[in-house]
Write a protein that binds this DNA or RNA. Structure first.
Lengths: 255, 255
DNA sequence: CGGCGGGTTGAGTCGCATCAACATGCGTGG
DNA sequence: CCACGCATGTTGATGCGACTCAACCCGCCG
């Protein structure tokens, strides 16, 4: 079982086996967190970078009127502060949406690892670039997409992001979506009730089905058109094979 | 006249005169751009990092249905791709909202300058951190703030950001806001008409006045409360004095 | 003078929020 | 084993915030 962090990086960087082992060493120490608990609280001074190994987490804020906004969604393999841009204090919180396994990456370790090889550094820059692009596209959704468009865009994005780490069932276009409709509302800037009705809308038109916590996309192209989804912002250059130190390809299955 | 880039950095980093001169060397080559022109087009492969020296610019996208969303606003002193996280191709465009003077920073130069001193590197990380935080707060506005709250929040933010680079008239709480109401709409995810009416609302309650292109805040505390504005995300630690190479303070006015 | 960019206003509509009730499934404790 | 509470999802009724369309005004400039 390849670590989701590595699976993701393979879509944006060409890494050798040694590089991957270097990354793995960063993610040794882990801890488990219950759903709805904070990984890092608001105002906290984190000493470790949280990296999601299993479960879904998020970055969020709560306004003084009680309204919550989820700023970014963290899936397995996601570094909660890409490339370790750690603030002196957190101006938002990191929370677990489901029970999570979180690796604690030492802040100094990630910087020093970046020095080891330009390829490793590039991989981290790529990760930062993609995370920023996802946040920007999220912002565009909140500003200029309707409720069904926001949902459609999210489902298309999750399809690709989860696919990168092997969490989409092959041809089925189907994946687990373990968060509540209330969470979806806070993520997409909508009320829970309206999320519910917009989901029904998408189901009625046959785009998706959502039973229990499992989402299936029946008409990917239709959904993409509906949601103005263009996958360019994810900056994938396709799943890459692993490299030997000399740059030649190596059989991935050997891992 | 101190370069706006340096003025801004002084609010987050402690730099020596030598550090500042190093930064200045990055911004030598400039070009001028007319209002509404693109600094970097969608899909382009930029060879230089744009740094705004004068005027207002933005990062934006246009959906296929023609709706435009401004993702971030760039004021004088802002690096359009903080710390030079340059994608292989642009998944959005950079455009000038007013006539602009843009410095063209070489992409390799900024990385190599970061190697020169940990202080310089920190300054660039700080810049990246703040730019991300501003974008996130923008996202929260689009998701969870009403029209007047969004405007209020923007005006509070501009007050601080422009203040950092000396573009706010001292005690007057007054600054130039050279963009149109249509641009404000695209920035805040609202229609032009609704921006107009919400501005009137803010004027009627005496919070602000806006004549021509000049905005004055009459009740800063009131505006902050109204807009749930908390300045923590800007991560300023106050205007700092310049340092000598040994770390001791130097008279700022000597520049 | 006419055109144009920017701002302002009115009327009508609709997307989404809010409030409220109810259904369902699940875990827990009596 | 059932009763209960609780979290989640669903549905209906109502109201408001924001959009759209459309007209009109003003100052500026060619």
């Amino acid at each position: 079982m390849v670590h989701p962090f590595l699976r993701k990086l393979r879509h944006g960087a060409r890494l050798t086996k040694e590089h991957e082992e270097t990354f793995l060493r960063l993610t040794q120490s882990t801890r488990t967190i219950g759903a709805r608990e904070d990984v890092v609280p608001l105002g906290g001074q984190p000493r470790y970078l949280p990296l999601v190994v299993d479960g879904w987490a998020c970055r969020y804020t709560t306004l003084e009127n009680g309204r919550r906004q989820i700023i970014s969604l963290f899936l397995p393999g996601d570094l909660c502060e890409p490339f370790g841009v750690l603030p002196r204090f957190m101006d938002h919180a990191i929370g677990a949406l489901t029970p999570c396994v979180i690796a604690q990456v030492r802040t100094d370790a990630i910087r020093s690892v970046a020095q080891l090889s330009p390829r490793i550094e590039e991989a981290l820059w790529w990760d930062l670039l993609v995370a920023s692009a996802i946040e920007r596209e999220h912002l565009v959704s909140l500003g200029r997409r309707s409720a069904t468009e926001r949902l459609g865009h999210l489902f298309c994005e999750l399809h690709l992001r989860l696919g990168m780490i092997g969490l989409v069932d092959g041809d089925e276009l189907s994946y687990d979506m373990p968060i509540t409709q209330a969470d979806l509302g806070d993520l997409l800037g909508l009320s829970m009730v309206h999320i519910n009705r917009s989901l029904q809308e998408l189901r009625k038109t046959g785009m998706i089905s959502l039973r229990g916590r499992r989402l299936t996309i029946h008409n990917l192209e239709g959904l993409r058109e509906l949601a103005f989804f263009d996958d360019g912002y994810l900056h994938r250059f396709g799943p890459l094979s692993l490299l030997n130190a000399d740059g030649s390809d190596v059989n991935q299955t050997s891992l």
